[in-house]
């Protein structure tokens, strides 16, 4: 049984509107379907505005989806009730400091999921908190301090501890290390890898950093403009990208020893969400685009081993 099964999940936000204007609509996430196996890490890599954060927030129930269904370990979840989701799926936020209430002690923060999700009694709670805190390698004396006393790496571990306290099956990690220094980043990534094994967790790892995603994921999904354009095994995806956008991402990542060239025309502009192009959203930036790409929206289809791409003219 797969840990997470998402079918045709989409989100449309109304925008504008008022007394004189008809409200428009932005399709932040177009219907997407995917499954994540238990114990797997699915990386989601994309640029700003690709819909990765909206998708993540729908998965944990912070945003109500417009259409579609989320199933966790076979159980369908179709109400946008964060507490019901909370026991199954948890979220680790990008900015560790802003995700901790500045007026609460660390103990109060970690206690909340135990108290409200699991209804745990006071004396049992103390033991459980100590256990969780030990598993993220933090000293117990930190429990009675306030968030501002911690630096980014420690604060992010506290964020992870809070998510763990809910005893979820799945964790959505939304850019968990992008606010951290390079030397601390690896500490947190390795800790998360250990915890996954220890608690048999399933991860969805969202990042804009290709190298980081590749290093932690089993499979990687690439959304662009609200739809998934490619999904495949981490070790293959950037080596043999099928979708020209994945290829562009891989070419843009700075790599030691590669000459500095702009991988695409500098005058390209991203598609306008208020006025989405018909057909393939990437066509305007794509060197392989043809007439067909401007009219027909490509569907995800298998291309090679365990790799799917939504492209009329995939790369070989």
């Amino acid at each position: 049984m797969s840990a997470l099964d998402v079918t045709e999940l989409s989100k449309t936000f109304p925008v504008g509107g008022g007394l004189l204007h008809k409200p428009g609509a932005v399709r932040a996430v177009r219907p997407v379907s995917f499954t994540v196996e238990t114990g797997e890490t699915l990386g989601i890599v994309g640029e700003s505005g690709c819909g990765k954060s909206t998708l993540a927030r729908m998965l944990v129930g912070l945003i109500e989806p417009t259409t579609g269904q989320i199933e966790i370990e076979g159980k369908p979840l179709d109400n946008a009730d964060a507490a019901a989701f909370g026991k199954l799926i948890q979220y680790v936020f990008q900015d560790p400091v802003s995700s901790l209430n500045p007026r609460k002690t660390i103990r109060q923060i970690i206690e909340a999921p135990l108290k409200y999700l699991h209804g745990m009694a006071g004396d049992v709670r103390a033991g459980r908190i100590a256990e969780i805190f030990a598993s993220v390698n933090l000293r117990e004396e930190f429990l009675d301090r306030y968030p501002h006393e911690f630096c980014g790496g420690q604060a992010q571990r506290i964020g992870i501890a809070r998510a763990l306290a809910a005893a979820p099956r799945i964790m959505v990690l939304d850019e968990p290390v992008s606010a951290l220094d390079v030397s601390v980043q690896a500490q947190v990534l390795n800790l998360m890898a250990d915890l996954r094994g220890q608690f048999n967790l399933t991860y969805l790892f969202i990042s804009h950093d290709l190298a980081v995603v590749e290093a932690v994921s089993d499979r990687i999904m690439v959304p662009y403009f609200g739809s998934v354009v490619e999904i495949g095994r981490a070790e293959d995806l950037f080596k043999t990208p099928r979708h020209p956008y994945t290829n562009l991402l891989a070419d843009s990542a700075p790599v030691v020893g590669r000459a500095l060239t702009a991988p695409e025309q500098r005058d390209t502009e991203l598609p306008d969400p208020l006025n989405p192009p018909p057909g393939c959203a990437f066509a305007g930036r794509c060197p392989r685009a043809t007439e067909r790409c401007l009219t027909a929206e490509p569907k995800l289809r298998p291309l090679g081993d365990d790799q799917l791409a939504a492209c009329h003219h995939p790369l070989d």
Binding site: L62, A82, A83, G86, L100, A112, A166
Partner: peptide
């Protein structure tokens, strides 16, 4: 958001 996910 974190508080909502913690069941509050």
């Amino acid at each position: 958001d974190a508080a909502r996910l913690a069941g509050k």
